[in-house]
C-alpha cells in the first residue's frame, strides 16, 4: 500500500495563511499599537471623522443653529457651486494669490537662507530676525501691514510723496490689494521655509564645495549644479507646504480687506467662512471646502510627481 502523498497544493487564490505569531511578536505589536494609540485617537477624532462628516454635511441642507433643518439634498450643493459666479471668482482669487505667493515665498526664503547660512554673528542675528516675524499672530501682522500700507500715515506713502507721486491706496485698489496681501504673507511666513532651507544647506558636505572650487566652478555653476540638486527634496517639501498653506489664506484677506475691493480679494476660505457663519449655509460651505481640498490635493500631488520625475531624469 502506498501512502497518500502528504503534499497539499495551495489553490492560487487562497490567501497565504499567517504564520502563527509568537507571544513575543504579539507583545511587540501591542506595544507598537499602544505608542500609536494617542496619535491615532486624535487623528481619527479630529481629521478622519470631520472629513467624512464634512462630506456628509455637503450632501444636505444643513443649518448650523437649527437642528431640525437636515434635509438630504444629494449633489444639489455641488451643482449650485458649479453655477455660482462668486465661487469661481473666489477660486480665481485664491489661485492668483497662490501663484503670486508660492513661487515668491520659495525663491525669497531660499535667497535669504543662502544669504544667512554659515558662520558669523551677523548671520546668526539675521537668522533670528527673519524667523521672528513667524511667531506673530495674524492679527498683529495684518495690523502692522495695514499701517505700513496706509495712504495717510503709512511707511510707503511718504516715499511716493517725496518722489512727487500720488500715494497708492494699496488695500483699496483692485490691482494692488492682492499683491499687498502677498507681501504681508511673505513678510509673515518667510521664516519657516527659510529654516527648512537652512537645515538642508547645512547638510550639504563642505567638501563638495571645496571640490567644486578646485574644479573651477563659478558661483553660479556651484548654485545650479551643487546646491540646488542637493536641496531638491527640501525644495519640493517647501513647495508642497506652501501650496497647502497658501490655498487656505484667510486671516490676511479677512482682516486687511475683508474680501474687497469688490470681491477682488475674496478667497475660498473667506467665502467658506462667510457662507457658513454669516449666511449659515453649512452644507454649501462644506461643498466649497471639499472643492478646495480637491484643488490642494491635486496641486500637491502634481508637485510631488514633478519632483520625483525630475529626480529620475
Amino acid at each position: 500500500m502506498t501512502a497518500a502523498p502528504q503534499v497539499r497544493t495551495l489553490p492560487l487564490a487562497e490567501p497565504r495563511t499567517r504564520a502563527p505569531r509568537s507571544p513575543a511578536r504579539r507583545r511587540e505589536g501591542l506595544t507598537a499599537f499602544l505608542f500609536l494609540a494617542p496619535f491615532l485617537a486624535v487623528y481619527l477624532l479630529f481629521l478622519i471623522y470631520p472629513f467624512f462628516k464634512g462630506i456628509w454635511i455637503s450632501l444636505h441642507d444643513w443649518d448650523l443653529m437649527d437642528d431640525s433643518i437636515r434635509e438630504w439634498w444629494g449633489f444639489l450643493n455641488y451643482s449650485d457651486l458649479w453655477a455660482d459666479p462668486i465661487f469661481w471668482q473666489a477660486t480665481r482669487n485664491t489661485l492668483y494669490f497662490v501663484a503670486l505667493t508660492v513661487p515668491s515665498m520659495t525663491v525669497l526664503s531660499l535667497l535669504l537662507a543662502l544669504a544667512v547660512s554659515g558662520g558669523g554673528r551677523v548671520r546668526a542675528v539675521c537668522r533670528t530676525i527673519f524667523l521672528m516675524s513667524s511667531v506673530f499672530s495674524v492679527t498683529v501682522v495684518t495690523l502692522i501691514w495695514t499701517m505700513v500700507l496706509s495712504t495717510d500715515r503709512g511707511l510707503i506713502a511718504p516715499v511716493f510723496q517725496a518722489l512727487g507721486f500720488e500715494p497708492i491706496n494699496f488695500l483699496g485698489s483692485p490691482t494692488w490689494a492682492m499683491p499687498s496681501l502677498t507681501v504681508t504673507t511673505l513678510w509673515w511666513g518667510v521664516g519657516l521655509p527659510m529654516a527648512l532651507f537652512l537645515a538642508a544647506l547645512g547638510a550639504i558636505p563642505r567638501e563638495l564645495y571645496e571640490a567644486a572650487e578646485l574644479d573651477h566652478a563659478s558661483r553660479w555653476t556651484v548654485f545650479w549644479r551643487i546646491t540646488l540638486p542637493s536641496i531638491r527634496h527640501t525644495l519640493v517639501l517647501v513647495l508642497i507646504l506652501q501650496i497647502v498653506g497658501q490655498f487656505q489664506i484667510f486671516g490676511q484677506a479677512q482682516l486687511m480687506t475683508n474680501g474687497g475691493p469688490s470681491g477682488m480679494t475674496r478667497t475660498l476660505v473667506l467665502y467658506i467662512y462667510d457662507t457658513a457663519f454669516r449666511d449659515w449655509l453649512v452644507g454649501y460651505a462644506a461643498a466649497i471646502a471639499l472643492a478646495l481640498f480637491a484643488m490642494m490635493f491635486l496641486f500637491s500631488m502634481l508637485q510631488l510627481w514633478l519632483g520625483r520625475r525630475g529626480e529620475e531624469s
Partner: peptide, 20 residues
Amino acid sequence: AARDRGVAMVFQNYALYPHM
C-alpha cells in the same frame, strides 16, 4: 585662489557630486 593653483585633491569622503 585654490582653483588657480594647479592642484587636484582627493578627499577622504570622496566628495563626488552625488547627482552627476
